[in-house]
Design a protein around this nucleic acid. Structure first.
Lengths: 119, 119, 119, 119
DNA sequence: GTGGTCTAGACCACG
DNA sequence: GTGGTCTAGACCACG
């Protein structure tokens, strides 16, 4: 899986990586149990500090998306917990996005087809 | 219109205000041409720095949501440009939200009904 | 509140600080809404790096014990969520401690009086 | 006695095994003088490195819980020393756990009944 | 002035 | 070899 950093983005690097890994898991590009690159390898590949990658992995671990162990490095978790609900934060964000789209004259049908496409 | 700041949120205050005003415009609570409170008044009401509100209004102006003039203060624009498309940034965010929801086991139908509700 | 680091402990520094702040909140030494020292001040006082203190504050924030904002620094939260239950991790730890105490011939009454004392 | 490794835990494997053996001794599941599996056997059973099990046994021996000899392998000690006191480290941990439980709104009675249950 | 992010580099425990 | 921790130092956005 290829991680791309937008260095001009306001989103912190560790968060950009985190988001891309989450999207990779969702899309199936990263499968349950699959090995992630080592902290050092990913840092080298992207050209950033190992601490930054480490921060990403710890965040993903805290969120229950991956597990890390000293022998095997980081792996996608087999049994990610399914809360079944959209987090309050994401609801807020979604509402903001929908509002902006609405003002821009985007029909609701288009938003829905985007959601379906991404799902 | 009542603006509420979530002091526990990581979203900067100026952005929280901006988002709420945008959502107010989208929902129709703030109508085209409607007067917004002065920077000073809003700052006092929320209990924050005038600089922060000023930053919000500047941003909204840059984005084309409001217009300011010395006589009338800030008003919602009559003719907000309708690009008709979702911005690339919002698409990215939407994709992230959909991915997280999907992993959490949220059915696509529920996401769609959220979108409809917010629209 | 005075924070003391045991440099010979296996417990990471950021965790030692975190634990002492949590105990301070529990004991009432740190009151709801009370200001914590700034990252820089605490780092200087303890003689450690600001990054380490920052890690502590972010952990406490994630756990819902404190809030941080750029204007006021870090403060104890007013409304810490009360789950009402002992976490699984803490149950495991408690079980380990009780087991070791039992083998050492510590009577259960003494354990109970320790719990009462700390509560 | 069955040893279970929680691969999602931050507790090192050698420590997880150590803790479970200590709890086994405390509960009486492992009796004084009882033979423990060989390093090799236990490593094979759990699917981990022999080095790890070896580290566990070494630790348990140092702590006075087991004894090893070349002929019989490892056995639970007949006369484990009863200090009669809770170690300073465990007191600290207990205090931390009690503090966290207290903040979470767990009544002291519930903590006490946990202690009784585990004892 | 505040917390948040990031780097370059180092050392450590675990396995 | 792996992730985890820590330092010294820097720069940034927010307010």
């Amino acid at each position: 899986m290829i991680i791309k950093i937008d260095e001009y983005s306001d989103v912190p690097i560790y968060m950009q990586i985190r988001n891309q890994i989450v999207m990779g898991i969702s899309s199936g590009e990263l499968k349950a149990g699959e090995q992630l690159p080592t902290v050092r390898a990913l840092a080298l590949e992207i050209g950033i500090n190992t601490m930054t990658v480490s921060k990403t992995y710890q965040m993903l671990k805290n969120e229950g998306y991956i597990m890390t162990d000293r022998k095997n490095g980081a792996r996608v978790r087999e049994n990610i917990e399914k809360s079944g609900v959209v987090s309050e934060e994401n609801k807020k964000e979604l509402r903001r996005i929908v509002s902006e789209a609405r003002i821009s004259g985007v029909p609701v049908k288009e938003l829905i087809s985007l959601v379906k496409e991404y799902y």
